[in-house]
């Protein structure tokens, strides 16, 4: 499949590998014994009931929370090494833009941060200006966040996430607060970016149709404590488009996942 590089031993390249990883906050176990291998270039969506640790999973992979047990490796390195090499990028539920910076200046933020730590900041092939064009915001470079709509702000956040050309793009319900039409459009735009850059995506969502539409694989989590329930491969024709939602295959996956979510 496109985007997945075969390694000489015949296996796939692994972007992220978790083995027996758990996360605890005090006496509360957020994630328990997670073992997964996420292939390079794959698009995974994460579903699960509220409080199942979907967001915690992304925070574990991005070195925001440490594992209490088990290990997490990104491209064969520790999560910290991957973070310092800017191989991980995060798109939050809110765009999390700095309100006093223009769209362009917000996209440039990752190039300015971390210098004092002496980390080597990789520059992507695309300039911040080109990235804004890629997400369809050409001409709005100088707009302040409050002058942009919610969807536009989230697109700036995606451009910012791509500026250091990450290998792993983590998204925590990035389109959850947007209206249906904007969401459809951004979903398609995201898939285009994914196909073009070959970045590995981990996308948390509450929406079953969104999970099926975007994901090559859907990771279903179970709550209390958060554990892997199952991984469902979505075998739909590529490139995906919104019309797929009208097909019987799509509905089959959706109803399967709905049932699976119900008995979590």
């Amino acid at each position: 499949m496109e985007g997945i590089v075969q390694d000489p031993r015949g296996g796939r390249h692994i972007a992220a590998s978790l083995s027996g990883a758990s996360v605890t906050f005090g006496s509360f176990t957020a994630l328990s014994d997670i073992s997964l291998e996420i292939g390079a270039g794959e698009f995974w969506t994460i579903l699960g009931p509220s409080g199942c640790g979907k967001s915690t999973m992304l925070r574990l992979v991005s070195d925001l929370v440490p594992p209490a047990a088990g290990t997490v490796e990104i491209l064969g390195k520790s999560t910290e090494a991957a973070r310092l090499a800017r191989e991980i990028a995060f798109v939050f539920q809110d765009a999390t833009l700095l309100p006093w910076r223009s769209a362009l200046k917000n996209v440039e933020l990752p190039l300015e941060m971390g210098r004092k730590r002496g980390i080597d900041i990789p520059r992507g092939e695309r300039t911040p200006r080109e990235l804004l064009e890629l997400v369809g915001l050409k001409g709005r470079e100088d707009a302040l966040p409050h002058e942009l709509s919610g969807g536009m702000r989230q697109r700036v956040a995606i451009a910012r996430a791509l500026v250091c050309q990450p290998r792993l793009l983590l998204m925590d319900e990035p389109f959850g607060a947007l209206d249906e039409m904007t969401r459809d459009r951004l979903n398609m735009q995201l898939l285009e970016i994914w196909r073009e850059t070959g970045v590995t995506c981990l996308f948390v969502t509450h929406s079953i149709p969104e999970a099926v539409l975007l994901g090559q694989k859907v990771l279903m989590l179970r709550a209390h404590p958060g554990r892997v329930k199952e991984v469902v491969e979505i075998d739909l024709p590529e490139p995906r488009n919104v019309e797929l939602r009208e097909t019987p295959e799509f509905n089959r996956y959706s109803s399967y996942l709905r049932k699976s979510l119900e008995d979590c």
Partner: peptide, 14 residues
């Protein structure tokens, strides 16, 4: 915003 601080941490900001 706490998410902004998380962003700063992912960017390894001092």
């Amino acid at each position: 915003n706490p998410q902004t601080l998380e962003l700063a941490r992912i960017l390894s900001a001092s």
